[in-house]
């Protein structure tokens, strides 16, 4: 009678993953379609002896994260597009000061207030940096409630390994849909990092992003760039689905990758050798996986709920050696499997 799994919506699964990874503190401000995250955190964090504060704004949230994370805690926040925009100044500081933390963006449609339906138009903001100054953050792209849990769980290790903010970027549909989730084992917790502002650590510890001398800042920024190159060398991650013999390679993430799999099956039934590359991280982008498919592939087709943002990375990854087409929709509607099949057939 027992089952190994729970039925959780993606947003709840994210909170579970964070708690199992030993997240100490959650700071957030309510927004749709990320609402279940703050509500679940409000219940579970205090229940498990962790810190929860509903901040006065997303600006408040991210800066509380900065304080707690600087003090050596695993800290996180979550929001959707507009709230994430408000946080950007501080994300830049966090990247510059190399303070590890986790931020989830459960996207909605924009620009402006847009609507609460599904769109993937935050790609540029999240994947390319978002705030001022030339920083990058690793970006996980979960496509199921299970991955919301697993990637939140992994995100803290990644954040600490590279001393960086880490994003989890997905859409409102993955956030709100319920799915069966099997939980990972909770971590064994280690002491706060030696560089953190934890009583007992060297009191010379301090965080700043000011470097008045150009030579100093150059050194600092080159070190950040080296870190980003290291991520690109070590951490690319993509799911390859029926790509071994694929002549048409679809590229999609989040909810659209789920529909794309059904489209691949239908296309194959109609004699079109399609496959799917689903980036599990958007930065670093899975360039190697895409490049490995160039020889056999005739065409790449990027599927996005945006005007075409990830497509730029696909083109760069394969250095435009094959045509890259875009199937897109904006404003809050999904692209149905039938539309995908028709769209791919039209360009194949």
């Amino acid at each position: 009678m027992s089952s190994k799994s729970l039925l959780l919506c993606g947003n709840e699964a994210l909170v579970y993953g964070a708690l199992l990874a030993g997240c100490d503190a959650y700071f957030g401000y309510p927004i749709t379609p990320a609402g279940e995250i703050i509500e679940c955190a409000a219940k579970k964090f205090p229940e498990l002896g962790r810190v929860f504060i509903q901040a006065e704004s997303e600006i408040g949230s991210i800066n509380m994260v900065m304080g707690a994370a600087a003090a050596g805690q695993r800290a996180m926040t979550a929001s959707s597009g507009l709230g994430i925009s408000l946080m950007q100044e501080s994300v830049s500081y966090l990247a510059g000061m190399e303070i590890p933390c986790v931020i989830a963006d459960i996207t909605r449609s924009g620009p402006g207030i847009g609507n609460i339906s599904v769109e993937q138009s935050d790609y540029f903001q999240i994947v390319k940096g978002g705030g001022h100054g030339g920083y990058r953050c690793p970006v996980f792209a979960p496509a199921s409630a299970q991955e919301m849990c697993d990637m939140a769980f992994r995100a803290f290790d990644m954040a600490e390994k590279y001393r960086t903010p880490v994003y989890i970027l997905t859409d409102g549909m993955i956030g709100q849909m319920m799915e069966s989730v099997t939980l990972p084992e909770p971590i064994e917790k280690s002491a706060p990092a030696p560089y953190s502002l934890t009583p007992g650590n060297a009191r010379t510890n301090h965080f700043t992003s000011i470097y008045l001398e150009a030579e100093e800042l150059e050194k600092k920024n080159e070190a950040l760039l080296a870190k980003y190159r290291e991520m690109e060398a070590n951490d690319q991650d993509a799911e390859l689905w029926k790509t071994d013999d694929a002549e048409i390679v679809l590229v999609a993430y989040g909810i659209m990758s789920r529909l794309a799999k059904n489209a691949v099956d239908e296309l194959r039934e109609r004699g079109i050798k399609a496959g799917l590359v689903r980036p599990k991280l958007l930065f670093p982008f899975p360039k190697n996986a895409l490049n490995a498919l160039v020889d056999r592939a005739k065409k790449f087709v990027c599927i996005e709920l945006s005007g075409g943002q990830m497509i730029e990375d696909v083109k760069l990854a394969i250095e435009c050696r094959r045509p890259v087409e875009l199937i897109h929709r904006v404003g809050g509607k999904l692209i149905s499997v039938d539309e995908l099949v028709a769209g791919v057939k039209a360009v194949a």
């Binding site: 503190a25 700071f27 600006i59 408040g60 994260v65 304080g67 707690a68 003090a71 100044e89 502002l197």
Partner: peptide, 27 residues
């Protein structure tokens, strides 16, 4: 100051202070 330090974004010291203060009982 011969103690821990952090330089915060403009105006955000109270929120950063909140996160710091809640982290350790004797801070």
């Amino acid at each position: 100051m011969d103690c821990f330090g952090i330089s915060t974004p403009h105006g955000r010291a109270p929120a950063v202070a909140t996160g710091l203060s809640r982290a350790h009982r004797d801070s």
